[in-house]
Amino acid sequence: MLQSVVQVILAGLSTGMFIWLVASGLTLIFGVLGVLNFAHGSFYMLGAYFCFTVLKYMGANFWLGLILGPLCVCVIGFIVERFFLRYVYHIALPYQLLLTFAFVLIFDNLVKIVWGAGSISPPALAALGGSVDVLGRKFPIYNILIIVVGPLVALALWGMIEKTWWGRIIRASSSDREMASAIGVRVPALFTSVFVFGTWLGALGGGLAVPYVGIMTSGMGETIIIEAFIVAVIGGLGSLKGAFVGALVIGVLTAFGTRFFPTFDMFLTFILMAGILLWRPQGLFGVAR
């Protein structure tokens, strides 16, 4: 019993870390730009596909793919923000959401065109393939790596936002946009940089997912964006701490759900989301707006 519980928790933690990587970018972008980005799941997906391509055609080095892949996606993120999203900040919410939704349709379809409509099985990564014994059961080293990377990213983000000049500007602009621009922050440039950085986080999650997910499909972004939405909402829209905690909760809960109530795990997640929204609309760690 204990063995399986530990196994489930470990599996849940690694799933949670992927959701966290996507949710962190989503949350950062919402916190600063005020836009809920449906296309963020597509950045995750694109990160995975670009990483896979680098892996396949450029010397089969996963780590090289993990660096180059997300960078390519950043270029796409830049285009999306600079030439489209920037022009809808001032208009009504439905248009903003639907603009990012349009990009979901476009990216999903482009992936089908470029990489084919079927699913892709990434090559086995022998170098990453080992496993360790956890209470007598095997647990892949790569999953341990993911469980370590997640908190590292969280720590780095926290340090960046609390300690650096860029972070201070981000904090200032997310609490009061007009004030920030009054004291000389170039808000448009800041928005672009935050969006591109958020994109990178999502794409990094996608890259890291390549050896983990087993199969890649053009729909992989849609599943995770809904999970990331739930996480962002549960944690409190705009709160990174909330997104981290929320991702762990959802990750572990989903793992338990899949293990013990396989039919109703999805239902439980949404009940949790709705419950938290009703009880504390600002989320666990959000501030009331």
Partner: peptide
């Protein structure tokens, strides 16, 4: 793809 572009 086409519908996305029209939406855009």
């Amino acid at each position: 793809l086409w519908f996305g572009i029209v939406l855009l």
